[in-house]
């Protein structure tokens, strides 16, 4: 295991118990951290990046204790925060150069090569002289990941990376991460977008209210949902009843009525047929049935 988390707790000074006894094993490759807003994902990320001190518990990163060996841990970390803006007056290549310098790349020539090749690989070489704040949203994210990767870290922590990106950029970004993960790097991808995880992570954890609600592979999570997804054909007057009774995944108008997908153990009294589940269904089912969190109100 690349990262082992034991009995991790975080209580903020205002009394908010953000993380409750978290125990996790994070293997190399892409690891997805899923959960609704406020589940404690960001707190966990910030602890893992040594930006925040845990109240108790231990984190072992490639054999280093996160609290005692902070410097060593930092040396193998790359981080792309959620709200990633840029200093207005840095050029694209300067941003990478700065990160490279801080990672201990002393040799100017080597550093320049590394920066250029990284710019090439994230497709930003042509805009290297442009001020970073003039880049498009997708380019900014790519620059973000580039600065996290520049020093070839063993662990990369990526917080909500695809928020606000158009589908094309999102796919491009996921592919970029996957490529990196292939090189034996641990990537912790925190997101509330189910699609990010389903397409790239081999292992995942679902967090809720400061706790790990599920840990395993996305397939295992899907398996738990098999036979629990239904497609219903409804009249307009029935739609309201279904909406109140079941967690509705999608509602599509069809001819005179509606075609609705719901997750439930069983559906009675409606024109229902089973539907093959995806991770999004699994996430909703998990929230509804395992954690009883779902509400349509």
């Amino acid at each position: 295991m690349s990262i082992t988390i034991r009995g991790l707790n975080k209580i903020y000074p205002n009394g908010n118990h953000a993380l409750k006894d978290i125990n996790l094993e994070i293997p190399t490759g892409m690891f997805g951290l899923l959960g609704p807003n406020g589940a404690g994902k960001s707190t966990l990320m910030r602890i893992l990046t040594a930006l925040l001190e845990p109240s108790s518990g231990s984190v072992d990163v490639f054999g280093y204790d996160l609290t005692a060996d902070r410097k060593q841990v930092r040396a193998i970390l790359g981080y792309l925060p959620q709200d990633f803006r840029f200093f207005a007056k840095y050029k694209t290549y300067e941003f990478l150069d700065y990160a490279a310098r801080l990672s201990g790349m002393n040799n100017r020539k080597e550093r320049k090569q590394a920066v250029d090749s990284m710019l090439e690989s994230v497709g930003l070489f042509d805009v290297r002289e442009r001020y970073a704040n003039r880049l498009s949203g997708g380019m900014k994210r790519r620059l973000g990941i580039a600065q996290a990767l520049i020093h070839k870290p063993k662990v990369i922590i990526v917080d909500e990376p695809t928020t606000g990106l158009d589908p094309e950029e999102r796919i491009r970004f996921r592919n970029l991460l996957s490529e990196v993960a292939e090189q034996g790097v641990t990537i912790i991808l925190s997101t509330h977008i189910v699609g990010d995880i389903s397409s790239s992570c081999r292992t995942m954890a679902l967090m809720n209210r400061g706790q790990v609600a599920f840990y395993g592979s996305p397939e295992e999570m899907l398996k738990r949902t098999e036979g629990k997804v239904w497609r219903l054909k409804l009249r307009t007057d029935e739609l309201d009843i279904v909406n109140r009774r079941y967690p509705v995944i999608s509602t599509i108008p069809s001819g005179i009525g509606w075609e609705v997908q719901v997750v439930a153990d069983d559906v009675a009294g409606f024109d229902a047929e089973p539907f093959p589940p995806n991770l999004e269904h699994a996430y909703v089912y998990f929230m509804e049935n395992e954690l009883n969190l779902w509400t349509n109100d």
Binding site: L51, R74, L77, P81, R85, F86, A99, S103, A148
Partner: peptide
């Protein structure tokens, strides 16, 4: 103020420098 406001600083904070 800038350091406080922007997450951007944090990408530098995670580096090994003291």
């Amino acid at each position: 103020k800038r350091d406080k406001k922007l997450d951007t600083s944090e990408v530098f904070y995670v580096h090994e420098l003291s």
